[in-house]
Computed example of a mutant assay.
Amino acid sequence: MNPGELRRRAANGGRGLTLQLAYRPPYAWERLRDFLDQRSINGLEWVGDDHYGRCFAWQGAKGHFTAHHEPQHHRFSVTLELDRLASLKAVVGNIRRVLDLDADSTAIEAHLAQTAPGLKLVEGLRLPGIWSQFEAGIKAILGQQVSVAAARRLAQILVDTLGEREDEAASEGRRRFPEPAAIAASDLAFLGMPGARRDTLRRLAEWHLAHGHDEDAQAWLTLKGIGPWTVDYARMRGASHPDIWLGGDLGVKKALGELDGADPAAASPWRSYLTFQLWNR
């Protein structure tokens, strides 16, 4: 189904759409689902055995979606609420990116098998995306020097405190990830974090207010408190760059040390996938 067909269906049926997004198998849904679930933020995201969904703001539009996996058809059936149909193509493209639906896993894994012969590959492993580089960068800063569970708790507090409610008339419910303006204007004391890290969060938010969401995260290296790992993580998950090597990550170092003859440089242009394969050992 092309975007034009989706627009016609939306016009006939109001704000709600149902669409099918296909992928080329294999697709390791359980691994992607579990990775997203371990990091999901209540109200912002929802994850179940066969689905992933979230609230979003994107290119002038706001809404939410739920993607239900239909493995027998090699696709996701997506229900989407969107308040601005002009942004439909961009929103659908970003859903495809977050779920990594356009990857050719067979070709990627054939390449990785040659460069890391001792690595038992997870068939169909995809890159679990984050909705934007900004959100990925904020989460990476929150996760500096703490566990995944602690980073998730901090992100939950941030969303609960500064995230815009999807329905402002409701006292509870779904929220979007905080906009840069909301983070830049807050002292973030409610996070209970050291002042230097709160300053880094605000610097990143202020940078986005000045430059927008589309700039390459490499420019963040000019910001105090942001180093290569944060930038690479944001590019890998917030922009789904396929060739990011997180060689400084402790989990990656440990897994790589257990292999003989693995050459990360030779894994290019698919080093992001090698990183996730090592994380999944």
Rank of each mutant, 00 (worst) to 15 (best):
H69P: 01
D249L: 06
D49Q: 15
K253Y: 02
D216V: 06
S272R: 13
D102E: 15
D37V: 00
R237P: 00
D50C: 03
S171E: 15
H73P: 00
W29T: 02
V122R: 13
L142S: 12
D102W: 03
R271H: 04
E164G: 11
F177I: 09
A239W: 06
G48D: 15
H68A: 08
L278K: 01
A28R: 05
A155L: 00
G247R: 08
G93I: 13
G143M: 10
A262R: 05
D37S: 12
D199F: 00
Q218D: 15
W29Y: 00
G251H: 08
L256M: 13
A182P: 04
L119D: 02
R197K: 15
G143P: 10
R8I: 08
T161F: 11
F56E: 10
D199L: 10
G93A: 14
A210K: 14
D232G: 07
R203W: 02
K254M: 07
R174C: 09
A210E: 15
R126Y: 04
V122Q: 12
A196F: 14
L99N: 04
G129D: 13
H64D: 13
L101Q: 06
L250Q: 07
A155M: 03
A255E: 03
Q277Y: 02
P180Q: 10
S132E: 06
D216S: 14
S40N: 00
E123T: 11
M236Q: 14
M193S: 12
L259M: 02
A181W: 12
L125H: 02
A150I: 00
R24Y: 00
I108G: 00
A140Q: 05
R126S: 05
D50T: 11
I183K: 05
R8D: 12
G14I: 07
K253L: 09
D100A: 07
G48H: 03
N280W: 00
H74L: 03
E206V: 12
D214S: 12
A136I: 10
R126H: 04
H211D: 03
G192F: 10
A266C: 05
L99C: 08
P3C: 07
M1C: 02
R271Q: 05
T200H: 01
A61R: 04
A267P: 08
A149G: 05
A266M: 02
Q145T: 10
P128L: 07
L221I: 09
V231Q: 04
G137P: 05
L44F: 05
N42F: 04
A155K: 01
L154V: 07
A116H: 06
G261R: 13
F76R: 11
D37R: 13
G60F: 06
R235D: 04
D263I: 13
V92C: 12
G261C: 11
R24N: 07
T222I: 08
R271M: 01
K120P: 00
A86V: 13
I130Y: 02
H73M: 11
E215I: 13
L32R: 05
L6E: 04
G16S: 10
A265K: 14
E164W: 06
H111C: 00
A113E: 06
A151I: 09
L36R: 13
E206K: 14
A181Y: 11
R176G: 15
L21Y: 10
L6N: 01
N94E: 15
A151W: 08
L19G: 01
A266V: 01
A67F: 08
E123D: 14
A113M: 05
T106S: 14
R153C: 01
Q72M: 13
R202P: 08
A140N: 02
